[in-house]
């Protein structure tokens, strides 16, 4: 791989990155994950870019995707501002710490940590099941004070579902951790936001998925500034990644209607398992 990286012309890698991100964008949408969680381990494992630039581009891939989706999610009621802003705030604060920590740690150790984190994410994705909620309960005191409740109407079925956030203090603590990991690796955080909102807080799954986009749009902004100022945003890496992922995601929306989501999800889990193992092996010096 090192020989290939040395012999290829400079433009071959941004071009290959664009194609890879286009393909990742196609499978990210039907798999229900943001681009960052696929992008960082795969590009870090198989492209010659230093992890700093991969993390920086990953942060921007996650941010751009979330920014493009957030207005539509909000205007169609698939995301809640009152639910997303408080959680996005704690994630934003901890993502700053995560991003700064990433620049203080040696790249090989960070690669090992990335491998472990990705394998952990695979476990979360494989284990997560939808919470359909039990009988409607009043929001906890903090959720009531922040207005984290409402009535959700499923556009597909027309079913009405009143919801109110549960276990908000625990969720806030969890979002501190999610923001830290997202900022540290430039991952985005849809993989963690959705289970946290749905399984811990009892938010309907579709509203959880939509609000996750809003949380990423606000929380990734802070970490993006750290990457920008640390010089970890290289246009020839970031721009093909963002463009490829966005174009691929447009195809992915069509695939979503035709492919079996469970099959795509299994494919993503297998890819992440391989990419996580590769990051771990690269960091440990077993496979360079």
């Amino acid at each position: 791989m090192a020989q290939l990286a040395a012999s290829a012309p400079w433009w071959a890698w941004p071009l290959a990155l664009f194609v890879a991100c286009f393909l990742l964008g196609i499978i990210a949408v039907p798999a229900g994950v943001g681009g960052g969680v696929l992008f960082v381990p795969i590009v870090a494992g198989f492209f010659p870019f230093h992890l700093d630039y991969v993390r920086g581009a990953g942060q921007l891939v996650a941010l751009s995707g979330a920014l493009v989706a957030a207005p539509r999610l909000l205007s169609t009621g698939l995301a809640s501002l009152r639910l997303g802003l408080p959680l996005g705030l704690v994630a934003a604060a901890s993502s700053i710490a995560g991003a700064l920590l990433g620049f203080a740690v040696d790249a090989a150790r960070l690669e090992v940590a990335l491998g472990i984190a990705i394998l952990g994410i695979v476990a979360v994705m494989a284990a997560a099941r939808e919470s359909r909620g039990g009988p409607q309960r009043p929001p906890d005191a903090l959720a009531a004070a922040l207005g984290m409740h409402g009535v959700f109407v499923d556009g597909a079925t027309g079913a009405t579902q009143p919801w109110s956030a549960q276990r908000t203090p625990q969720a806030i603590a969890l979002f501190v951790l999610i923001g830290l990991v997202a900022g540290l690796f430039g991952l985005g955080a849809g993989w963690a936001n959705v289970p946290a909102l749905n399984l811990l807080m009892g938010v309907p799954l579709k509203l959880a998925a939509g609000t996750s986009g809003l949380i990423i749009a606000t929380s990734s902004s802070s970490a993006a500034w750290i990457y920008l100022h640390q010089g970890a945003v290289l246009p020839v890496v970031a721009a093909p990644s963002i463009l490829g992922m966005m174009l691929g995601a447009r195809i992915g929306v069509r695939v979503l209607h035709r492919a079996r989501a469970s099959m795509v999800r299994r494919l993503v889990i297998a890819m992440l398992l391989f990419a996580g193992a590769r990051a771990l092996a690269k960091g440990m010096g077993w496979w360079n």
Binding site: H50, Y53, S221, G231, V233, L234, P235
Partner: peptide
């Protein structure tokens, strides 16, 4: 791109900084 970001300082041009800075600020 093979070296750490700290080895070269700012990787992005000034125009790129403005564009990415805008995107990283607009949601807030």
């Amino acid at each position: 791109w093979r070296a750490p970001a700290a080895a070269h300082g700012r990787g992005a041009s000034r125009v790129m900084l403005v564009a990415i800075g805008w995107l990283a600020t607009c949601s807030v």
